[in-house]
Amino acid sequence: MEFSVKAIKGQLKKVKIKGVLGSLGFAVLLWLFVSLNDSYITWVQIPLVVDLPANRALERAPEQMLLFEVRGTGWQLFSLLFFNTTARCYLNLNKVVFNNDVYNVTKDELIKSADLMKNIEIKNVRPESIQIFTGQISSKKVPVIPDIEIIPGEGFTVVGKLKIEPDSVLIKGNSRIVENIRYWNTEKMLVKGKIKSFSISVGLKDTLRNIIDFSPNYVNILANIQQSAQKSFKDVEIKVLGKQLPSNYVIQPQRITVILTGGIEEISKLSINDVSAYINYNEVISDSVGIFKPEIKIPDNVKLLNIEPSLVRIFKQTK
Rank of each mutant, 00 (worst) to 15 (best):
L222I: 14
K243R: 15
N248G: 05
D274S: 09
E266M: 04
T261V: 04
K239P: 07
Q226W: 04
P246R: 01
F233I: 02
G262W: 02
L245I: 03
V258H: 02
K234W: 06
T257Q: 07
E266R: 08
S247Y: 07
N220E: 10
I221V: 14
Q226R: 04
S271Q: 10
Q226G: 05
V219N: 10
F233T: 01
L260K: 01
L222T: 15
Y249V: 06
I251W: 04
D235E: 15
K239H: 08
K243L: 11
P253V: 00
S268M: 04
S276A: 06
I238P: 10
K269T: 09
V250D: 14
S271G: 14
I221S: 08
S271I: 06
S268F: 04
A277S: 15
G242P: 08
V250F: 09
V236G: 06
Q230C: 07
E265S: 09
S247A: 14
S276Y: 01
I225C: 14
T257I: 01
I221Y: 00
A277D: 14
S215N: 14
V275A: 08
Y249R: 11
Q227H: 05
E265K: 08
T257D: 05
P216V: 05
P253Q: 07
N220V: 05
S228T: 11
Q227C: 02
Y218N: 15
V240Y: 00
D274Y: 04
S276F: 02
G263Q: 00
T257V: 04
A277G: 07
N217H: 06
S271Y: 12
R255V: 05
P246D: 04
K231H: 01
I221C: 06
I267C: 13
N224L: 13
T261Q: 15
P246M: 07
E266H: 00
S228N: 10
P216Q: 02
F233K: 04
S228V: 13
I267D: 04
G263L: 05
S215A: 12
K234C: 07
I272R: 15
R255M: 05
K243G: 12
Y249F: 14
L270H: 09
Q244H: 06
S215Y: 11
